[in-house]
Amino acid sequence: MMGMSRKSLDGPNSAATAQGQTEASRNLYRKGAGFMRMSRNSPGLLNLMYVPVLLLFSLFIYYPFIQGIRVSFTNWDGFNANYSWIGLDNYVRMLHDKNIGTVIRNTLIYGVGSTFFQNAIGLMYALLLNQSIRTRGLTRTIVYLPAIVSPLIMGYIWYFFFQFRGGALNDIVLLFAEKPINLLANPDANVWIIMAVNTFQFVGVAMIIFLAGLQSISKDYYEASSIDGAGPVSKFLNVTLPLLAPSITINIVLNLIGGLKLFDVIIALTKGGPGYASQSLSTLMYKTYFGAQDAGYAAALGNLMFLMIAIISVAALLFLRRKEIQS
């Protein structure tokens, strides 16, 4: 993701004017430099190739996005043709909603919590499995396997583990205690369980990205630091970590977006309950729209969710990029 935009900083057709090209070919490109000049081979005409994509985006992303802002200023119920403009009322209502604090906290736990653990554990796995041991192929395969399964189904599988009656966890608990535990109904535990299930499912993706990053680090750096007398810890801090910076950036940004919009796993494990205890912005919006038929407020919640994801992920991206350049 990062390299692409960096490449684009080189300026238009930078590679085309690179040395080693024939005069004829250079002219071909010069001819096509202007957008309006529509000869048979002009890049301007070629731009038609992305028009369908922009059409789809306008219809299914930009238009609804603008409509969503409009709807959030109304008291529309989602069905009736009659509704009235209520200005910022939906947003004011959000401030007074006694559940919104819990919901935002949960959304942050799902987003930031999973990001932290996926990166920390993913990096440890990658370091371990970058060593030459015979079981590493098998372990990599199995760690990545859950990422192939639908998050909804992964949620159900863990439901079998945590469920109150006959759950696999309680089979163990009952060996030591008298009573089974109902963690999924426990508001202090279930949010963390959902976060952990999301981490479990996608830690393999982080691991693969880290492994690819590790393998792109030249051995020379390690040899050089060995000559300087660096130990394993100092090698990790001064060679591995800085050179892994691009992988860290990708992982953090991808995991943040993935965790902040978490939906399927919550539906499978708790449906956001009990009450609002494990609700995230995404499930609350779903409930408000289809359950309470409160489209105006649901649209406002959607906009809040968009803002939150956009601000957090872009801020993280910019911050990490700056770090990357420094190191």
Binding site: K261, S282, A298, G302, M305, F306, I309
Partner: peptide, 10 residues
């Protein structure tokens, strides 16, 4: 970065 869920209503 636009999750489809955020524009679900419209």
């Amino acid at each position: 970065i636009v999750p489809p869920l955020t524009i679900l209503v419209p």
